[in-house]
Design a protein around this nucleic acid. Structure first.
Lengths: 117, 117
DNA sequence: CTCTATGCAAAAACTTTGCAGGGAT
DNA sequence: ATCCCTGCAAAGTTTTTGCATAGAG
C-alpha cells in the first residue's frame, strides 16, 4: 500500500490510508452509506478521494439500482449481480466478458436473485 | 399496443399512449432528459408511468454512469455498453448471458469505447 | 511559506411525494 | 359519485462544490 503512494500522483494522507485499508479489508463493493459510520472523514473527503482513486485507476465504480454508487478496489476482473428486489450485490467471479471494441472496466447484471424468486 | 392496455392492469390514458409510442419509435434506452422536450406530460407523470410499466414488466431500466436512469421496452435480450468518458450507450445484441441462479433483466458493461480510447 | 487536503454548509442533479383539480366510467 | 390520473410545487437522496482552515513538506 505504501508503494501506491510512491508510484502514483496520490499523496499520502491519513484519510486516504484509512479508505484504502477499508477497501482492502472488505474486498467487496461498498458505497458511502455502507461505511460512513466507520470512517472519520467527512463525506466530501470521501467522495473527493474516491474520484482521485478512480482517476488513478485504483478502484472501479458502478451504479446500483438504489441510485448509489459502489466502489471496489480493482482486482481480478469479475461481474456483479444486483437484485432489483433486495438490492443485494453479489460478485460473480466466473464470468469473463471480452469485447474487442471496448476496454471493459465493469460488468453489472441486474435481475432477481434466487432468494427473491 | 392496444392489447397491452387490455392484457395488463394498466389503464389507457393519453400520457401512457404517448410514452409507449416514444419507446416503440426510438427503440433504444432513454432517460427523462432525452425526451422531456418531446413529451407533453409533467416529469412526475413520466416517472409514475415508468414505474408502472416496469412493475408490469413492459420496460427494463438501468442506471448509467451519469446518475440518470435509462428505460427501454423489453425486447430481445441484449446488453448495454456505457462509455465512462463520453457516456454514450450502445446496445450489444450479440452477448447472451445466462446464469442459472438468477433471472437476468439487464446486463450493463461499462468501460471506454473505441472512439475515446 | 506554499500547496494541497479537509470539514462544514450549501448547492446541484435527478427522482419521488403530497395535494388539489380533472377526466373517465 | 367514485376512482384514478395528472400537474405543480415541495421534499428527498446522493454527490459535488465553495470557502476558510488545517496540515504536510
Amino acid at each position: 500500500m505504501d508503494n501506491l503512494f510512491k508510484n502514483t500522483n496520490i499523496k499520502q494522507t491519513s484519510a486516504r490510508v484509512e479508505l484504502l485499508r477499508i477497501f482492502a479489508d472488505l474486498r467487496k463493493p461498498i458505497c458511502y452509506e455502507d461505511i460512513k459510520e466507520n470512517i472519520s472523514m467527512d463525506k466530501a473527503t470521501f467522495y473527493r478521494n474516491i474520484s482521485l482513486f478512480e482517476e488513478e485507476g485504483i478502484i472501479n465504480s458502478f451504479e446500483s439500482n438504489d441510485k448509489k454508487r459502489y466502489f471496489e478496489l480493482k482486482s481480478n476482473p469479475h461481474a456483479h449481480f444486483i437484485c432489483k428486489l433486495c438490492n443485494k450485490i453479489e460478485c460473480i467471479d466466473t464470468l469473463h466478458i471480452n469485447i474487442p471494441e471496448y476496454k471493459i472496466d465493469n460488468v453489472t447484471i441486474s435481475g432477481i436473485c434466487k432468494k427473491c424468486l
